[in-house]
Every structure is written in structure tokens, then in C-alpha cells.
Nucleic acid binder design. Structure first.
Length: 230
DNA sequence: CCAGACGTTGTT
DNA sequence: GTCTGG
DNA sequence: CCAGACGTTGTT
DNA sequence: GTCTGG
């Protein structure tokens, strides 16, 4: 669940939703209709919440001996997150918010996998709860990476999957998530979104290949025909 | 003591 | 089937 | 998440 | 870094 994102927006929209004071880098935003694990995405770190940062998707713990397992930690289940070796320190000290205009989900129908796009029905950006860590590469350079926290689905997501990303749905929730917080209070925030906040529709299976990246990935397809053979 | 894992999803 | 790369 | 590789030797 | 298994 939540293994592919899109980030198609404007600086104006970001600052309208996350605050005029949020610092954006000079130059154009790096937009993408298809952000896959191991690629970089825009995040706000608790360590420096005044800046919109970019980190690699797939958390590599600071003690990791190599970076090959990054794609194994693209998500962190909220259940047990405070005890898992890879996540117990990040959930306490290294929380972040992952920005996206939508994410993709593949619905399994028999042996088919049909991709859907999921986005807020109010037209705003998604703010997903995440954790991050740093890892020192063999050459000494620092690699910063993140994972998206997941939980059980709300009403509309349950039609597609049994998991969904944890969403932060107000400036208050975002400030709280990025602030100093006892771990118990952080865990209490890891609940499914309220029902009715998300729209979803089927999209082209061009999204399957991570090298495809264009507006056609956001075009709406009709719902699939009923599967007569179950 | 040292060696090896450390994750999620979905499917069987 | 399982791992790596995007 | 899905797509694509999954091997060695030797040569460019 | 920390826990589990041998």
C-alpha cells in the first residue's frame, strides 16, 4: 500500500496550505506524476520544519551496513512501530510530513492488478505522516531517507486495500506531529483518515512502469467491468 | 559468547 | 521464485 | 509499488 | 544500535 506517489502542484499552493514562511528552494519545483521507491520526494522534517526538503523514499536505518534494503522500508506499519529496531528511534525523534497531490494503489481483481489514483476531495495536497533517518555512505556522505506510516483503511480505501497511509488533515495536526511529543502521543495520531475525505478513480497501467511520467497518468478511466468469473 | 536479522504487502 | 533497480 | 533480471569470460 | 537464536 502506498508504494507510488505523484507531486504535481505549485509553490503558491504549497505555501497557501503549509504556510508562507515555509522555505522553498530557488528554481522550479521538481514535479512528477510517478514517484517510485528509492526516488526523492518532498518532505518537511521535524528537525527543520521551516524548510521543504527532499529525501529518498525507503528508510535506511543509521546502523545499516548497506543501502540495498532501502526498498524494503518504504512503509512502516503503525502497529508495533515503537518497538521495531528500524523505527523505534525515528518515531520518537525523527518524524516528518510527506507531501503529495495523490498516491496510487493497485486493486487486485482475480489475477489482474488495476491501478487507482487517490487524492483529497477538497483539492488540497496530501500530508502523510512519515519517519526518517540518516545513513552514512561508505564514502562518508550522508544519505537521508524516509518511510510512510500506514494504518487500517477508512471507508473509501477499504474498497481497494486493507492499508492506507496516515494522513495529517490540519495545520494543527502537522504542527503537533512535527513538534516535541511523547511517543504515546505520536502513536495516538496514527489512525485512519475520517471517511469521505478522499476521491479515487482508475488510471492507466502506464503508471506501473516507474519510467513513465506524464499527465496521462492522472487521466481518469472508467471503473472496471464486473468480473464474471470471480 | 558471536552471527544474523532488522520490513511490508499479499498469497498460500 | 526472489532479488534489484526505479 | 511494479518491472526486469536472474551468468561468465574477455574485449571494447 | 539492539535483539534473537544458536
Amino acid at each position: 500500500m502506498c508504494g507510488r506517489l505523484s507531486f504535481v502542484t505549485t509553490k503558491e499552493k504549497i505555501q497557501e496550505q503549509f504556510g508562507e514562511r515555509l522555505e522553498l528552494s530557488d528554481g522550479p519545483l521538481l514535479l512528477s506524476y510517478n514517484i517510485a521507491p528509492t526516488q526523492q520526494a518532498y518532505v518537511i522534517l521535524n528537525e527543520n520544519p521551516e524548510v521543504l526538503d527532499r529525501l529518498s523514499w525507503g528508510l535506511i536505518p543509521h546502523w545499516s551496513k548497506d543501502a540495498k534494503d532501502a526498498a524494503k522500508r518504504i512503509n512502516a506499519r503503525s502497529e508495533g512501530i515503537a518497538e521495531k529496531p528500524s523505527f523505534r528511534l525515528p518515531i520518537r525523534n525523527r518524524r516528518c510530513v510527506v507531501l503529495a497531490d495523490s498516491f496510487y494503489e493497485w486493486q487486485r481483481a482475480g489475477k489482474q492488478k488495476l491501478p487507482y489514483r487517490i487524492l483529497p476531495s477538497n483539492g488540497r495536497l496530501l500530508a502523510m505522516a512519515g519517519i526518517w533517518d540518516t545513513w552514512q555512505k561508505p564514502d562518508g556522505a550522508l544519505h537521508r531517507s524516509f518511510a510512510v506510516i500506514t494504518t487500517t483503511p477508512n471507508l473509501e480505501m477499504a474498497a481497494l486495500h486493507d492499508r492506507m497511509p496516515v494522513l495529517l488533515n490540519s495545520p494543527h495536526e502537522i504542527r503537533k506531529w512535527l513538534g516535541e511529543l511523547p511517543v504515546e502521543a505520536a502513536l495516538e495520531m496514527l489512525r485512519p483518515a475520517e471517511d469521505g475525505l478522499l476521491d479515487l478513480y482508475r488510471v492507466s497501467d502506464k503508471v506501473n512502469a516507474a519510467y513513465n511520467d506524464g499527465p496521462e497518468l492522472h487521466e481518469q478511466l472508467p471503473p472496471p467491468p464486473p468480473d464474471l468469473f470471480g
